[in-house]
Design a protein around this nucleic acid. Structure first.
Length: 379
DNA sequence: AAGCTGGCCAACCGCCGGCAT
DNA sequence: AATGCCGGCGGTTGGCCAGCT
């Protein structure tokens, strides 16, 4: 059995891995008498262990209702879902998985699920898309170099069009997988997603190129990326010459996606897994905005979920009109960031909903709240 | 074949809260 | 109210093991 080598503490009590003989003594005693006081148990059971060690051995390994073996896919999804609500409350999570111990779930999380979420571009702590992936443009040369190397070209030969070429996408990902960690893969995918959204032709497959970013996309992206629309437009110019086919646009980045029920209800859902949560659990979980369905397919980078409302408030608080205040995008409930914003603005200025982006452009240009390293990168 | 490395996981450690005195 | 005991919990560690060089 794996574990620590046998040793004794200062009281002469044995530590380290349990022997089959010790296990049997513990089982025999508890089956006959129950565990009673753990402190008193070792001497009564004839074990040279501390009570705590006996308790852990019993609860984590010897208990008859322990379920052994690999976690099923359903258990996996449930753990992720519960973790998004409860955080590192392993014992609380374990109560929803009969036969699984908190220790086992904790280990499984740390060794498997955390990595899986990272690969998906999701922060395993917040269950939000990782914002540190947003420095992808800073890594653009590196990403291009990797992709170019894979294509037998120099990075100078490779352009944004190549990055968006669906036929090259898989090859690029393969190259990244062999050269980089999951973070790089996620960055690469996110970069593609962003450029595709910025490409005005993406949804319609038309060859004409509008002069301005689709206001709808601009709002979503400027919100998500915490940059102001002008900088976004600069980025769009980078993608202007790209004319990907409509089929290359990931389904989760279309107008339809942003309007989809899933996106509109990225809220605590009330499915079966949520049943049995205490009010305290739910209260602890407030602010978590990614529901279970977001994880159902472990396939690609998740939808561009806006940052928490706190972030949004920070971005625009006290700064007057928001870029999208004149557009009703119709997103729902707690994730309707724009609507919240609009409500906030309306409360201070009833005319704000009629204000245009152009009228407020200089203000946005001075908006330091939207300033971050993106500003530098894009400029 | 031998050495190295990272993944995995049982077990330990330290802290905390509830309870009895 | 203060103190000590006990069980529970989450974080961390140590060492086995498999895969790689």
């Amino acid at each position: 059995m794996m574990g620590r080598s046998s040793s004794s503490d200062e009281n002469g009590l044995k530590k380290g891995p349990w022997t089959p003989e010790e296990d049997q003594k513990l089982i025999d005693y508890i089956e006959r008498n129950g565990h009673g006081s753990w402190r008193a148990l070792p001497s009564l059971a004839g074990l040279n262990r501390c009570g705590k060690s006996c308790r852990l051995r019993w609860t984590n390994y010897l208990r008859p209702d322990i379920k052994r073996g690999n976690f099923t896919e359903d258990e996996e999804k449930l753990i992720i879902h519960l973790h998004s609500h409860l955080g590192n409350k392993w014992s609380a999570i374990a109560t929803h998985l009969p036969g699984r111990t908190d220790n086992e779930i904790k280990n499984f999380w740390n060794t498997h699920l955390k990595k899986k979420l990272l690969q998906m571009g999701i922060d395993p702590v917040t269950h939000q898309p990782r914002t540190d992936h947003l420095d992808i443009l800073a890594h653009l040369p590196q990403l291009l170099a990797i992709a170019a190397n894979n294509l037998g070209a120099t990075s100078l030969d490779l352009n944004i069009r190549d990055l968006l070429n669906p036929s090259l996408f898989d090859m690029n990902i393969t190259a990244l997988m062999s050269h980089s960690d999951a973070t790089q893969i996620a960055k690469f995918q996110l970069l593609q997603n962003i450029l595709q959204v910025l490409s005005p032709n993406a949804p319609t497959n038309t060859t004409s190129i509008p002069q301005n970013i689709d206001p709808f996309y601009a709002m979503q992206l400027s919100d998500y990326l915490k940059i102001n629309p002008q900088h976004l437009q600069n980025l769009q110019e980078l993608a202007m010459n790209v004319t990907p086919s409509a089929s290359s646009l990931p389904p989760f980045l279309t107008h339809d996606h942003f309007r989809s029920p899933t996106y509109q209800t990225l809220n605590l859902d009330n499915d079966q897994a949520s049943k049995g949560f205490s009010e305290q659990d739910i209260n602890r979980a407030h602010g978590v905005t990614v529901g279970k369905e977001e994880y159902l397919g472990f396939e690609s980078v998740p939808a561009l979920v806006p940052a928490s409302p706190e972030h949004l408030d920070q971005s625009y608080s006290g700064k007057g009109q928001s870029p999208g205040a004149n557009v009703n995008i119709g997103l729902g409930n707690s994730c309707n960031l724009k609507q919240k914003q609009s409500e906030h603005l309306s409360s201070s200025d009833p005319t704000s909903t009629a204000t245009t982006i152009d009228a407020n452009w200089p203000e946005f240009m001075d908006d330091e709240a939207s300033g971050c390293y993106w500003k530098e990168i894009i400029e």
